[in-house]
Design a binder for these strands. Structure first.
Lengths: 339, 339
DNA sequence: TATTGGCACTCTACAGGTTCGAGTGCCAAA
DNA sequence: TTTGGCACTCGAACCTGTAGAGTGCCAATA
């Protein structure tokens, strides 16, 4: 167990360090906070915290800096999440109102989150979930191309152009369209595959090639629902915080520019818990993010699809504000998508 | 007029500076290039170039660095555009094949361009142009929502969800769809507005409100074709070139993150000339780009729509390689979209 | 007239040295 | 368990001197 006063000292060290970016020493600590004990006593506590690997001295005879583990204890046990201010609430509300389109809503959300936190913000597109098919449309787009539109009951709409290598008869398209809808409306996305087994056999042999091609494209689209995507905003905030990244920010920028890394990150953290989850420094398995922290929260789309949104910043970030902002934005987004 | 040898000296200064990032002095200049004259003579030439504001000394008794004007003379009169290498050609071809979708093609293109040049790459989505309507589709998406799909003869497909505040009859939708197509197929986008004047009057009065709403959404979509969009890749390359941006790269990052700035830039440069066009340093009207250069080229979508693509990097960039890459990618993209 | 070698001068980058102050660890006393 | 005291450490800031690259100018030269 960590004694109470030592925990208080840790809290003080973290908040001072976040505020000043200077390693904090025993003397300035007692000056700024009223512990009711002398600097020497604090030094003993600090020695204890150092033994526990919660703080760390960049070099002999320097002040102390929180370790990743120290930040972790801080956020888990010490920090209170600040309620967001009236102004922020106001900002969120004006920002989120009046956009019907999923793309636009998410675009605004990510921008909002980055403005609110002054960090890099990310929003994951909603994924599959329990959604089912509401409607499938096939529209001739040119002599050899067909536009396929897939509408799910979560309100998501996907479009895709199918390239045929030959001309087609409109009648086939109409027939396929009718049969597909009859077969699939109300069917959950993850059951489309089994439902359409043998589908092309219900057509005349000469038409089966075209039907197969359309079906294949449909399955791809259904699957693309699983394929995930993340949008970003506020990359320049990273540069403004450059001095918080020892070494270089280059690896961080590379990491966040790489969809795969972010997706992996999001998926890993998905499992952890509901509400806001955190990765601090080296808790991120990806090397490039060793000096970065990630704050994530889930949000819902129509109660069926689930995805994440959050911010990335230096380990030395204002956790309580950022957690509050991420939580608030996730709630508002869920509300905005819920209608 | 600038004497021939002085021009040669300028060329040597620019290429040495690009290669070494060091201000270049008269002595190292004669060592590396064989001018057949002594350093003292070169110094006279350099004094002349400095009078002409083509080079500039960062401080007394330092070597010289090209000014924006110096770079301009260099690219306009001195540099030969390197033909791209076989490897690069290969890379372009593998990269560009096998994507039907406009979004995906442009996404690949921008990634390719940034890999090729190691700079920040940008691609503007094609704009209006002379395209006309091939087909309009209206699809019920839920009780109160309709999906509208707009297909142009340039092959672009746009979708948009129309939110009605009340339930609608499917019959109205079918009627609107039929009449719209009868009226508008083959009509140029910029003439849709006039063509649809009084359109709702051909419907029963009780249905006019719905029709008006749909029409209004259609006009918005047509107009959205004019609304431009730019995608980026390789932002982290900017950070890797940080030392080439005196002061900070922060303003540059802000500028390129701001769609409006880029769009303005692209539009301004549109007018200038066909082929590759360039803005060097302060030639960019935007202050944040004072130390950046922009290389742009136009490309075509199906011969009708026209847009730009290019790279942004430090003024001290390898102009000939970048110009060659931008030109080549623009050509390949035009070809890829042309089918 | 254009070119050259020479020379005195300037400025930066770098290395070494010194000082200052914040901070530490430890110990003996309270 | 807390405290004051003390010797010690280390980095930041500052100075100083030197080496090297570069300049401008001038008188001599082709």
């Amino acid at each position: 167990m960590i004694p109470d006063r030592s925990l208080e000292v840790l809290r003080a060290i973290v908040s001072d360090y976040i505020a000043t970016r200077e390693p904090v020493g025993s003397k300035s600590l007692v000056e700024r906070h009223s512990f009711g004990v002398s600097a020497a006593t604090i030094r003993n506590d600090m020695a204890f915290l150092e033994d526990e690997d919660l703080i760390h001295a960049p070099h002999t005879s320097a002040g102390r800096v929180p370790t990743d583990k120290g930040y972790r204890v801080f956020v888990d046990r010490l920090s209170e999440v600040k309620p967001i201010s009236a102004g922020e609430r106001q900002a969120i509300e004006t920002f989120m109102t009046g956009s019907a389109d999923l793309d636009e809503t998410l675009g605004r959300t990510v921008k909002l989150l980055s403005t609110l936190t002054n960090q890099v913000a990310m929003v994951q597109y909603p994924t599959l979930g329990k959604a089912s098919i509401r409607h499938i449309e096939l529209i001739p787009a040119s002599d050899t191309r067909i536009l396929m539109v897939l509408i799910t009951d979560s309100g998501r709409i996907q479009q895709h152009v199918i390239e045929l290598n030959e001309k087609y008869e409109e009648a086939v398209i109409a027939e396929v369209r009718a049969k597909l809808n009859a077969l699939l409306i109300g069917v959950a996305l993850n059951r489309v595959d089994e439902k359409t087994k043998g589908f092309s056999l219900t057509f005349e042999p000469v038409r089966r090639a075209v039907v197969e091609l359309i079906l294949q494209n449909l399955l791809e689209q259904v699957d693309a629902n699983r394929q995930e995507k993340i949008i970003l905003a506020g990359t320049s905030n990273l540069v403004r915080r450059e001095e918080d990244f020892p070494g270089s920010i280059s690896p961080v920028l590379e990491a966040i520019e790489e969809q795969m890394v972010l997706l992996k990150l999001v998926t890993e953290m998905q499992a952890e818990q509901h509400g806001v989850s955190l990765r601090i420094g080296r808790e991120n398995t990806f090397e490039g993010l060793a000096n970065a922290s990630v704050v994530l929260s889930g949000y819902e789309n129509h109660g069926t699809e689930m995805a994440k949104l959050g911010v990335i910043g230096p380990t030395r970030m204002d956790y309580s504000s950022n957690i509050a902002a991420v939580r608030a934005v996730a709630n508002y987004l869920t509300k905005a998508l819920g209608n």
